[in-house]
Nucleic acid binder design. Structure first.
Length: 371
DNA sequence: CCTTAAGCTCTTCTGAATGT
DNA sequence: ACATTCAGAAGAGCTTAAGG
């Protein structure tokens, strides 16, 4: 993507009501920066490099700044790119700084496609992975400049725009009820000897609709034929079944008609079932692993500390595969290497040199595995 | 020829994970 | 807290083969 408007905002919190403190903007044309703009009003100069908007006043309702931003968008009209763009978009749309129709791309998504095997895609991590120098992280302009550098090095080719925010999904009580499992109660002969076929989606899953029909004395088929007495139609009906029903003069009713009749005699009882969950750790064999085996860790003691649990277990798994000896905890002294979280400022890091420990950030380790 | 059901494909739904 | 993605599961339709 040749032209884009990179942005980053710092806010007062996670919710839109928490307001906007800083906006950083970098306009890019053909891989070069053509305009840089920082919108923010410092209240305390000493705090402004602390990050997360510290030292700045709230500007979300300031019309001069809002116009400044809108002006940039109208002058360039390039797509907006941000790291976790939906977050920035939510704030900017809420305060009328941009229209929700404006085309927005998420750089995390693009980086996931171009570099699929990173441990993390947070800005801090990718900055480390691509060896970008950044002094003041979590300040709007510094972050957006760092994002520019990262994108220069990563050069992602696949950009998929964010969609417009979707309205909240409608979930009826009936629907959430059925998701936990149902048991049919009562007896009925209301459809005794009949043969019926269902099409489309209904308030209840097809299998339950069929079960209800059977409980009422009916038989159930999958295709309409001359034995069929009724075709029960929900939403999004099957074309072929409708055509066949018209052809064979089979009466068609909607699913409400069916439900009204059967629930005069029957009732549904909720049955609690366990959520199965569908997450099973994938088995990664050495043959299909994207990561290299690094022989320099073989038989060495490696300390892993101050990492997120997910990243720690990933790194430990890889190191164990390399026959390294793992030490956990943040006070290991007698080790050969330590792998630490990017951007962390740890006591052990400072002492590493005099203890003859080689420190490696998680992003650099990630890079070693993929090079 | 007719009916049934298995098997395939496509879509929708879901929980978990992840970012700020 | 919330939006979003991901990947697997489930739902539904269509096609086809088998059997009467």
């Amino acid at each position: 993507m040749d032209n884009m408007i990179l942005i980053d905002i710092e806010t007062g919190g996670f919710q839109v009501e928490d307001g906007i403190l800083e906006v950083g903007i970098v306009v890019v044309e053909k891989n070069s920066i053509v305009e840089v703009l920082h919108i923010g009003e410092a209240e305390d100069e000493e705090l402004i490099n602390e990050g997360m908007g510290a030292g700045y006043i709230f500007i979300e309702e300031n019309d001069i700044y809002r116009r400044l931003f809108i002006d940039i968008l109208s002058r360039y009209d390039y797509p907006i790119v941000a790291h976790n763009a939906s977050f920035d978009r939510k704030f900017l749309v809420h305060y009328g700084w941009m229209n929700e129709e404006y085309v927005v791309y998420d750089s995390i998504r693009a980086l996931k496609i171009s570099h699929p095997h990173l441990f993390s895609y947070s800005l801090g991590f990718v900055v480390g992975y691509f060896g970008v120098k950044q002094e003041h992280s979590h300040t709007a302009l510094s972050d957006v400049m760092a994002l520019f550098e990262v994108l220069q090095k990563a050069n992602p080719q696949s950009w998929i725009p964010l969609f417009k925010p979707l309205p909240k999904k409608f979930t009826s009580t009936a629907k959430s009820f059925i998701e936990r499992g149902m048991k049919l109660q009562g007896e009925s002969e209301v459809f005794h000897g009949k043969h019926m076929v269902f099409t489309g989606t209904s308030q209840f899953p097809r299998i339950l609709m069929q079960e209800i029909a059977v409980a009422c004395g009916s038989t159930v088929g999958n295709t309409v034929n001359k034995k069929t007495d009724f075709l029960i139609c929900g939403e999004k009906v099957g074309k072929s079944k409708i055509i066949k029903a018209i052809e064979l003069d089979v009466p068609m009713y909607d699913d409400d008609w069916f439900i009204d009749i059967v629930f005069k005699d029957l009732s549904l009882e909720q049955v609690l079932t366990e959520n199965k969950g569908n997450y099973d750790g994938k088995i990664v064999t050495e043959a299909n692993s994207p990561y290299k085996r690094l022989h320099e860790f073989e038989g060495k003691k490696v300390n892993v500390a101050c990492l997120s649990l997910r990243m720690q277990s990933k790194i430990v798994e890889l190191l164990v595969g390399m026959d390294a000896i793992i030490s956990k905890g943040s006070n290991a002294k007698n080790v050969d290497y330590m792998i630490y979280k990017d951007g962390g400022d740890y006591v052990m890091l400072k002492e590493a040199n005099e203890r003859n420990i080689k420190p490696i950030s998680a992003s650099v380790f990630n890079r070693m595995l993929l090079n």
